[in-house]
Amino acid sequence: MDNFRYLPGVSTLEYEENLCVGCGSCEIVCPHGVFTMNAKKARLVDKDGCMECGACALNCPTAAIRVTPGVGCAAYIISGWIHGKENARRIWAARCRLWMDTGYTRPSCTSRAKCSKLRS
């Protein structure tokens, strides 16, 4: 993925290293190697690689990581502008299911995971 870089300096990812208990979950669940374990502490090594999927924050036992998770999809964001964020979620819940069936999000498994997250 190193040849894919998106806009720098935008991610909402925040990390408080002093809260880290060194469990290593963030390093494991991140699909972009944003965190690396070093001396029993997670180090935020590539913030600009973050796609805001939210897996690390969700699985951090001490809430040392915070991020506003979402779907990096222009069509979905337009839908949010038009219908409001909550309604867009509802509309897309059905759509994502359909897309999953048709394999639309196949290679971008992460957005597929994000679609299933949308469903909840």
Partner: peptide
Amino acid sequence: AMNFTGSTPFTSPTGVEKEM
């Protein structure tokens, strides 16, 4: 091309919105 952001596994929503 902008709409293709939703199909990739590396675009962040904050970034996409900024771009849009």
